[in-house]
Design a protein around this nucleic acid. Structure first.
Length: 589
RNA sequence: GCCUCCAUAGCUCAGUGGAUAGAGCAGCUGCCUUCUAAGCAGUAGGUCGCAGGUUCGAAUCCUGCUGGAGGCGCCA
């Protein structure tokens, strides 16, 4: 089982061009060869244009000199080099070299993708729903993007530690626990509910508790006493709190399973976990002189962040009343992730509104000496989910939309479409395909747009199943799978015949497949899943063009075997890529 | 007031300092006796918000401006 990356042709060409540059002008040996995929050839090298000025020569002449030198460089990959336009080098690679890449990638269990993140301990914070509350549309992006990054980085060799920072602590639990104790007949355990979830039931009970709290001073007093009991570790109160947490997690589990999210129970490390660590965290900041007293509270001032009055903005380490807020918890959290989890790269997947907050947390962690050396902390910010009216996505009644309802809507629409395409489908298969297509559509829509921007949530468009949607990719995969299925075992997985010349559509597909690892590596470095979506969409289009013009099963040998190899690699790559996005790749739809 | 992000086709969005800025949707014209038409081909659609600057070359980098979103002390 090889783990060495297969060098893509574009890299091979870059190396060759660099060598040619070195031969022509040793003083420019370090220059970027600027090799790119090209519309005019397989690749183009733009280095001459950039370098001509530096060495005081004509770009075309310099390009010609590079081209000559490139002819001398021994590289089996390059077929031809032409100088074009103001000084571009148009480079074509040999058919044999292209087939060689296909063959090598097919022989590798990782499709030739390397492990650039090898061994790097990477802590990814995502999802983070609140206990006793429903997951809503606001949890969609963090959960999907975070999970995709966990998959991508894990595949690239990173030692990924997932952290589900549950909202499992706070004074609101006092009120809820008190109410539950006084209403033992209330149903809220998952196994005594049908058609609803524990968090749904708890959210309703919480509203009632809140109403009672406001209306009944005696209940309010008992609730406050319950908060004290919870914070001081009263066993009965803690037991009830744990029960609420456990029941809520069952509901989250159901959603995660449905979404195909990796988060497991052991990844749940919520706010409560850091409560015992707050005192020492704060003591450390205070001893270092980073946390200072202000208006009776303990704060960390940020040097470069000013408020409306021009005053420095603080992190609230300890409130005037002695209590702790999220600033304290987040400081304890980053300290824990670096010092105890040994995180070398900390990733926080939360919405863009928290950008300033994390800037201040990171700054404080840096000053405290926790965030030092090669350790990096990154806020992976994403935009809001908007409705068709361009305002934050809400139901017609103006409420936040439950995640379950959103997924149900997508799957239901998917079922209508699927049933319309194939009325004879058996019900169980219909359900399965609708689920895979509907969920896939939601995830793809979320992941395929660049994450920094707000995006408009439009179920109709997602589930229209036409054009650039998750279903297009799944459909392309089913076509690949269908060919492989029909080819059956009659076609041995023989080595491809490198002597066969490539048709344009075969070439485009093969070259696309050759860059898979580059794209996945970019996603891991830049933490931008939409690049992988874009790649897979291009791959699906390239395959479709190939599918339309190069019939596989009816082709004569050895062309048939070569085309099957392309199908096989395309199918594996598509399936794997969809897997990294957390989207199912069914064989039939 | 300060900070961050954003502005690309009617709509939703891609776009690594490189050649003529691309997709999808919605339009229009065609294509199912061959591996799934959830598809494909063609056509039409652009002052890349505005103005400067850097560069051989700018949607891309810099500055300013306009417009939009978000954030800025005890709620996460």
């Amino acid at each position: 089982m090889s783990t060495a990356a297969i060098v893509p042709l574009i890299s091979q060409v870059s190396t060759a061009v660099s060598e040619a540059i070195r031969r022509v002008r040793p003083d420019l040996a370090e220059a970027d060869p600027v090799v790119r995929p090209s519309e005019h050839a397989d690749f183009q090298a733009n280095a001459a244009l950039a370098l001509a000025k530096r060495v005081g020569s004509n770009p075309r002449e310099l390009a010609a000199a590079f081209a000559d030198a490139l002819g001398d460089v021994r590289s089996g990959s390059i077929e031809s080099v032409d100088v074009s336009g103001p000084g571009f080098l148009n480079i074509a690679v040999a058919d044999r070299a292209v087939w060689q890449q296909v063959s090598a990638r097919l022989a590798d269990s990782r499709h030739g993708v390397g492990t650039p993140e090898s061994g790097r301990r990477t802590v990814i914070d995502y999802s983070a729903p609140n206990i006793a509350k429903e997951m809503h549309v606001g949890h969609l992006r963090t959960t999907i993007i975070g999970d995709c990054l966990a998959r991508v980085l894990g595949f690239l060799g990173a030692d990924v530690v997932r952290q589900n920072h549950l909202g499992d602590w706070g004074t609101q639990f006092g009120m809820l626990i008190q109410y539950l104790d006084e209403h033992p007949d209330a149903a809220w355990h998952q196994d005594e509910l049908t058609g609803t979830s524990s968090v749904s039931a708890l959210a309703v009970l919480y509203k009632e508790a809140k109403r009672l709290f406001d209306a009944d001073p005696a209940f309010a007093d008992r609730s406050r006493a319950r908060v004290v009991a919870l914070q001081s570790g009263d066993p009965a109160t803690i037991a009830r709190w744990r029960e609420i947490v456990a029941e809520s997690e069952k509901a989250f589990r159901a959603i995660y399973d449905r979404l195909g999210v990796l988060l497991a129970p052991e990844d749940s490390v919520g706010e409560s976990y850091y409560q015992p660590k707050l005192a020492e965290t704060i003591a450390e900041l205070e001893a270092a002189g980073i946390a200072v007293e202000s208006d009776g509270a303990l704060v960390v001032f940020s040097a470069d962040v000013l408020g409306p009055e021009g005053d420095p903005v603080p992190l609230m380490v300890r409130k005037r009343d002695g209590g702790y807020g999220y600033d304290s918890t987040d400081l304890a959290t980053i300290r824990y992730r670096i010092k105890e989890l040994g995180g070398e790269r900390l990733i926080y997947v939360t919405d863009a509104r928290q950008a300033l907050h994390f800037r201040m947390i990171f700054d404080a962690a840096r000053r405290a000496g926790w965030l030092a050396g090669d350790v990096e902390a990154i806020h992976v910010a994403y935009g809001m989910v908007l409705g068709l009216d361009g305002r934050p996505f809400r139901s017609r009644e103006g409420d936040t939309v439950r995640l379950v309802d959103l997924l149900d809507a997508a799957v239901e629409r998917a079922r209508d479409v699927v049933a319309g395409k194939d009325p004879d489908l058996d019900p169980a298969e219909l359900d399965q395909i609708a689920e895979q297509a509907g969920i896939g559509a939601v995830k793809y829509a979320d992941l395929s747009t660049s994450r920094g921007k707000d995006y408009v949530f439009d179920v109709d468009r997602m589930v229209s199943f036409a054009g650039n949607t998750g279903v297009y990719l799944q459909y392309a995969h089913t076509r690949m799978a269908a060919i492989l299925r029909k080819a059956g075992s009659s076609s041995p997985a023989a080595d491809v015949d490198g002597a066969i010349s490539l048709r344009p559509e075969e070439r485009a597909l093969a070259l696309r497949l050759d860059t898979y690892g580059t794209v996945v590596t970019d996603v891991g470095a830049l933490l931008e899943p939409h690049r992988l979506c874009g790649y897979l969409y291009d791959l699906a289009r390239d395959f479709t063009s190939f599918y339309e013009t190069c019939h596989v099963l009816s082709a004569d040998e050895p062309i048939r075997t070569n085309r099957l190899a392309l199908c096989r690699l395309a199918a594996r790559t598509m399936q794997h890529g969809l897997g990294l996005l957390g989207i199912a790749a069914p064989d039939r739809m």
